[in-house]
Design a protein around this nucleic acid. Sequence first.
DNA 1: CCGCTCATGTAACTGGTTACATGATTTA
DNA 2: TAAATCATGTAACCAGTTACATGAGCGG
Lengths: 181, 181
Amino acid sequence: MREATELESTVLGVVWLRGPCTAYVVRQEFLLSGSAHWSGSAGAIYPLLARLEQHGLIKAKESEWGRGSKKEYSVTRRGMTALRSWIGPPLPEWTAAPTFDPVRTRLSFLGALQPEQRAEFVAEAQRNLERELGRIRALVTSFRVQDDPYEYLSLVGTVHELEGRQRWLEEVARVVSSYDQ
Amino acid sequence: MREATELESTVLGVVWLRGPCTAYVVRQEFLLSGSAHWSGSAGAIYPLLARLEQHGLIKAKESEWGRGSKKEYSVTRRGMTALRSWIGPPLPEWTAAPTFDPVRTRLSFLGALQPEQRAEFVAEAQRNLERELGRIRALVTSFRVQDDPYEYLSLVGTVHELEGRQRWLEEVARVVSSYDQ
DNA sequence: CCGCTCATGTAACTGGTTACATGATTTA
DNA sequence: TAAATCATGTAACCAGTTACATGAGCGG
């Protein structure tokens, strides 16, 4: 089999973390993650889980549900090996590269705007970021660390990333206003 | 026409920034960006530029090159309008969300590893990050700011992001070693 | 004249999106 | 009893990937 995609491996991880669980639960994990990267569309998740099962990385236990049935997936031993080998170490080199940040991408073309628009772009980015940081810090506060320290640390990682972006936008604001004063 | 994808708008931006330029130059921009997000594959870029031209956002000036020809693209007035409206303000809300960080994703499943493997995962992530930061800081130093202040600021943004990740990994290292001592 | 860079594409494929379709269970 | 949530899928589509194919210009 070809190498697993990031989505496939991540789904495998979610099944391990939440399992035994249904496809529905896996979807919710992505839908509620608040990330633009993970859509969690049914058309992606259902066939993907079927694929993982075919390859013996997860197994389903069917139980009755109304007229139909409901499938609870859990990770097999082969699946655990695959999961561990995906997580690393070793980590693929590309994982150290900067991520895709849509604000940063747009900013490289800021010269295409008028000075007033430039200032407003930066101000709006700062406001949006502030709001998002508030939202996530509230999540951090309400998180029960003992439930899963690694999920907690992962969430804390998003805070650090956004704080980095915040420092950057402060620098950007200074430079932009000094250029356009 | 449907809304442009991020790649389409970014290519439009690159043509504006580097233009008039060939498809080859656009590809190099993505290939040398060092980002895992932008592949810059020919199969993506060539049809995409043809699409942008069909929609009147860029125009090509053909010149002879050997037996064939070479196309230099530049952004049309309609293209400039589209570019400005994509950059914002206003910025779509999702642009404020945390990005997709493959290290963070893997870390949420760190509980699947053995304690020694966990420590090694974090240590390797830190080493890789250090290397990447060194590489990018060298780029920042060699950058001629006056050439394009916004490209420069965009590059500085990647440094801030990686520094955020660095602070986070230090916290992670502390927590992980205290759990697993 | 060799190797590198500049230059342009296409064909087959596929992972993931969008949109649709259905019904059971729980809770206010 | 109405609304929200839990639950499972499929069909059409398409943007982007992989891999292939070709050739000119240029520096040493």
